[in-house]
Design a protein around this nucleic acid. Sequence first.
DNA 1: CTGGATGCAAAGGTTTTGCACGCTA
DNA 2: TAGCGTGCAAAACCTTTGCATCCAG
Lengths: 143, 143
Amino acid sequence: MAEQRPQRMTRQRRIILEELRKLKSHPTADELYDAVRERLPRISLGTVYRNLDVLQENGEVLKLESAGSQKRFDGDTHPHYHVRCVHCGRVGDVENEVAELDVTGFSAPGFTITGGTVEFYGICDLCRERGAPSRPDGPQGRQ
Amino acid sequence: MAEQRPQRMTRQRRIILEELRKLKSHPTADELYDAVRERLPRISLGTVYRNLDVLQENGEVLKLESAGSQKRFDGDTHPHYHVRCVHCGRVGDVENEVAELDVTGFSAPGFTITGGTVEFYGICDLCRERGAPSRPDGPQGRQ
DNA sequence: CTGGATGCAAAGGTTTTGCACGCTA
DNA sequence: TAGCGTGCAAAACCTTTGCATCCAG
């Protein structure tokens, strides 16, 4: 479990958390920064990053990583699957309930498998409307 | 499908592909760069990136964008699952065969789901030996 | 020959960090 | 009051790109 060091609930931290929970878009750090800045005009992007790290360590937010592009954040920690748009990288929530993935029986040399999840991909409505190809340059696309 | 434009098999491209297929470690671009440089000391990292892009568009290599900070590449395009070490980001191959994931029945507002895959996570032997925690700073870890 | 590919270096985009000051508990 | 958190700016990191030159077909 994550070590929960003593922490303070500063105005910045509270508002970052509130805005992230308000946004359903799984924003990137700078998108969240834009939202937070409407309430705290002098906040810095570094503070947003630092707080997202702390909040993630405390299990209050989810950091959705996609190597090499921008990370996205989710204020909803209730277990659910995500879809990622292969064209623009946007992330959405899958409505279906998550099924417990039974990891026993799976093995990988050099590794101890502890868990697994399903990752969905697809295309978001905005990209679809624009007539974007479903596979821009591979299964992942870029942001 | 990926449009396969006319392309040349340069020495650089061929050796990059050979080295990537030789490595079972799912290297990052700069790890592959190191390997390739032993045979082509004057190659540039930019060339490695450019060729990995081309090779990926042609379906000859896989770009693993799953998570971590750096992208990793796989010269084995045969369908298989991956495990990622939550501590160091290393990626391994899962031995089990892949099962076709039935995506019908899954839905996400604002998205059209086209596919999905299982992503395993765990801890690699090197990190285990070092006594690394299984959750360094969240479920993703960093490279 | 021709135009895709390369090497080099600079730029680009995202995230992290050092530091002095501020503010929560 | 103690020491975590902040704003600012610089640095670190990874990846892409402009350009002159090279070379595979």
